[in-house]
Write a protein that binds this DNA or RNA. Structure first.
Ligand SMILES: NC(=O)c1ccc[n+]([C@@H]2O[C@H](COP(=O)([O-])OP(=O)(O)OC[C@H]3O[C@@H](n4cnc5c(N)ncnc54)[C@H](O)[C@@H]3O)[C@@H](O)[C@H]2O)c1
Ligand SMILES: NC(=O)c1ccc[n+]([C@@H]2O[C@H](COP(=O)([O-])OP(=O)(O)OC[C@H]3O[C@@H](n4cnc5c(N)ncnc54)[C@H](O)[C@@H]3O)[C@@H](O)[C@H]2O)c1
Lengths: 206, 206
DNA sequence: TTTGAATTGTGAAAAAAATCACAATGCAAA
DNA sequence: TTTGCATTGTGATTTTTTTCACAATTCAAA
């Protein structure tokens, strides 16, 4: 099985989301051009990407929306359900907890953690908040593999190290800190400031 | 002047941030390996990227932290100051306003907009919130080129169209909506769910 | 001064990604 | 049935990006 490029994965996730939307609108079939338009990529790239997931459309009807969505989901290996935790129930953390509740996804938020006694043992947007001291046990007992970090940047490295030590293998890092981890962990840095700087660059020069 | 790849820009922004940190720690010089380690990219890629910005280090002392930071900043064209607005002062919007205040950047948040009368004419994290109806005038009068969208997904397209019509050329879109805009506008989609799905993919299979 | 060690900058090679272009397909309409 | 059309899937090609590898550079120490 050949390695798939990160960009391809990004696009597949977008296709999946667009297919989900089409399905909910009761659209049965979709052509590569349409999917390309919806997701913002060229249509030949859509077709090339779909070669990777091994789904065959028909020249006459294009792709079956339901089948293709399922095929991409299988390929992306989103299994029955993935349990995720969040660390740092501050402004951003609560916004994310809220956002996750709204999506009825295969990815489910199962717990939050904070060091602030005023936040511990409270429920935010349906998610129970535990004290940070219990996180290692929680991760091991519940076999958590993915976590979201929304603590202050100064605490991010310490938290990340503890997560990885306990078995976490993927981190979504919203802080501006660049995490240094020796073990092999997939880190997705979502620092808004970087995105904003990129936009500024492409707007006034690039 | 040759076109620079988006990935190169991403990396340059990270280098710049690491250099800023080094400067604040009074570090004078840095080698490509060190910068590579800090930013998480291979050192030959660091050197290759730096060729693009036209800064020359010395084999003996590596790069001058202050000069290189300045050189990248110039290259990225972050001019005196860029004014940015935010639309949608909800959970996420307020978290971002707070975050922007903490950074003392060349990018400055100058106003927020909302449709909710309870939020209009209030100040959140130092930023005044105007009614959404006044946004077109504001953009034109203040020559705003970049905006951040944190309204509900269902309103995102309408807002985005209005922004672009008024002169905005770059958008950071935090909603799951895929924006369709005919004019040439740079859009940075920061949908957390996509990042999370990517992490899940790379954790349990890729 | 000379040697040695570390690092830069960059041509060249390799690898990866995107694009092109078209045969093959399947359907609708004549 | 046959023709025409729009679309898929994919080899081939082009372009882009990354990696390799090493001459050139600089300095410190002998
Ligand atoms: N990527 C983005 O778009 C974006 C936007 C806003 C903020 N941020 C970043 O996200 C982080 C959080 O921002 P915020 O505005 O929510 O901050 P916040 O101060 O409101 O929240 C931080 C939370 O983390 C908790 N915390 C602190 N130390 C902890 C520890 N060691 N263990 C567990 N919990 C701990 C605090 O009690 C608090 O509840 C910051 O790093 C900020 O820079 C990112
Ligand atoms: N990318 C992420 O990580 C992330 C995280 C959380 C939420 N989100 C998304 O961000 C968006 C906002 O999330 P939230 O939790 O802050 O929601 P929210 O409901 O708390 O806030 C939305 C705000 O937009 C305002 N608004 C609504 N319609 C408007 C209009 N037409 N013009 C101006 N203002 C308007 C509302 O009054 C409210 O203040 C949603 O689309 C959500 O899906 C993204």
């Amino acid at each position: 099985m050949k390695r798939i490029a990160e960009n391809t994965i990004n696009r597949l996730i977008v296709y999946k989301k667009e297919l989900e939307r089409l399905r909910k609108d009761d659209v049965r079939n979709v052509f590569s051009h349409k999917l390309a338009f919806l997701s913002g990529f060229p249509s030949h790239l859509v077709r090339r990407d779909l070669m990777n997931v091994g789904y065959n459309g028909s020249p006459a009807h294009g792709y079956d929306v339901v089948e293709l969505e399922k095929c991409i989901a299988d390929f992306l290996c989103t299994p029955g359900s993935v349990r995720v935790i969040l660390i740092g129930v501050g402004n951003l953390g609560r916004a994310i907890l809220d956002y996750c509740q709204q999506q009825n996804h295969k990815i489910s938020m199962v717990a939050a953690f904070d060091s602030d006694k005023n936040k511990v043992n409270k429920v935010y947007h349906g998610i129970y908040t535990f004290h940070i001291d219990s996180i290692k046990n929680f991760i091991k007992e519940n076999d958590i593999k993915v976590a979201i970090i929304t603590v202050p940047a100064s605490d991010a490295q310490e938290i990340a190290s503890a997560l990885v030590e306990s078995g976490v293998r993927g981190i979504v890092n919203f802080t501006p800190a660049r995490l240094q981890l020796n073990e092999e962990v997939y880190i997705e840095n979502l620092d808004m400031m970087l995105g904003l700087e990129k936009v500024v660059y492409f707007v006034d020069g690039g």
